[in-house]
């Protein structure tokens, strides 16, 4: 297998995450929430991070911003952003990056906004911190941002408190805040999951347009493969803290190699084709404190063999730019 890192040119990538390890040291033991995750992101690209809840995809997102709360800790790896190592930066320097060059959209719009402050104050806080905008200027920019994310009559709504908005509206506010400083990277953690289905598509479309028009990059973290497939350039699939498959969106969606990815794709209802029972991945995610020594998907895998139980399958390239971590993937049709 070729060493990928060597062939890369640093400048080509906005973000390069290498062998990231984020562990949680709990009373019951160590949880390896992110265990050796590597991926990279080009400027202007959108990367989809897919996996079940608890697979470490959100922790990966927070790790990039270095927002891991105790008892969690980034144990190892590298995060190179715009050529600089984020893990070597001081907390002060990180504060200047957060919300400025890298901003984040949270999963639950109902709880992400501070209930005791007006929308205006929360948008202007970012503008003040990073853009140095104050007073009238900040106000105008806040109104403009609200208009941009599609909030009607933003002039009056800017003075509202979060509880006066619906969930969809709040998520628009959050998007407005995260776009306020034209960041080069937006990490969107399940941005539409908590919303009504009708609002989801609308909002995703808006977010996509704004990211593209802003020429920002985005990491779109979701459990919903179908959401990712439409917008992202590349996809990584995570399971139990590890990347089990990655590649361009087309190749991963059209030619999924890992049995887990296959399972995920089959569990999505299709509008076309024959009607059949939706696929279900049997079994349970393993207990994080008792990870099997071999492939973590082995207990649920239909292809499982002896070797899977004993040895963890390293990522290997099955076609150009498409990697998979499975002893058997691509070797058999299923």
């Amino acid at each position: 297998m070729t060493n990928i890192r060597e062939v890369r040119k640093e400048s080509e990538f906005l973000l390069d995450v290498r062998e990231l390890k984020t562990y949680f040291h709990t009373f019951k033991g160590v949880v390896k929430a992110v265990d050796g995750v590597s991926f990279s992101l080009k400027r202007g690209d959108i990367l989809g991070v897919v996996g079940e809840s608890g697979c470490g995809k959100s922790v990966t997102g927070f790790s990039v911003l270095r927002l891991i709360d105790s008892p969690g800790r980034i144990e190892g790896g590298e995060i190179i952003f715009e050529g600089d190592s984020l893990l070597k930066k001081s907390e002060r320097e990180m504060e200047k990056i957060r919300g400025n060059k890298i901003s984040m959209i949270f999963q639950d719009p109902m709880t992400s906004l501070n209930p005791v402050y007006t929308i205006k104050k929360q948008i202007c806080e970012t503008l003040e911190l990073h853009g140095g905008l104050r007073g009238k200027e900040a106000h105008n920019r806040a109104v403009e941002l609200l208009r941009l994310v599609g909030i009607p009559s933003p002039e009056s709504r800017v003075n509202y408190y979060p509880h006066q908005f619906s969930g969809g509206m709040r998520q628009r506010v959050i998007i407005a805040i995260s776009l306020a400083t034209s960041p080069s990277l937006i990490i969107a953690d399940e941005p539409t999951t908590a919303l009504d289905v009708t609002v989801q598509a609308q909002l995703m479309k808006r977010l996509y347009q704004l990211v593209k028009s802003n020429n920002s990059s985005m990491i779109l973290i979701t459990h919903d493969l179908s959401l990712v497939s439409g917008v992202s350039d590349n996809i990584i699939v995570m399971y139990c803290g590890r990347v089990i498959e990655k590649g361009s969106s087309e190749s991963v969606i059209s030619m999924p190699a890992h049995p887990y990815t296959v399972g995920l794709l089959e569990s999505i209802p299709k509008m076309t084709g024959e009607r059949k029972m939706l696929h279900q991945i049997s079994g349970m995610v393993p207990n994080p404190f008792e990870m099997p020594p071999g492939c973590s998907f082995y207990p649920r895998c239909e292809l499982g063999q002896k070797i899977c139980e004993a040895e963890y399958p390293r990522l290997r390239e099955i076609e150009e730019g498409h990697y998979v971590s499975c002893h058997f993937a691509g070797r058999r049709n299923f």
Binding site: M104, F106, D108, T111, S112, L113, N114, L129
Partner: peptide, 11 residues
């Protein structure tokens, strides 16, 4: 969440 969001804003 809003505390984490505030931190993510660089506060």
């Amino acid at each position: 969440d809003y505390i984490k969001f505030a931190k993510a804003k660089g506060v």
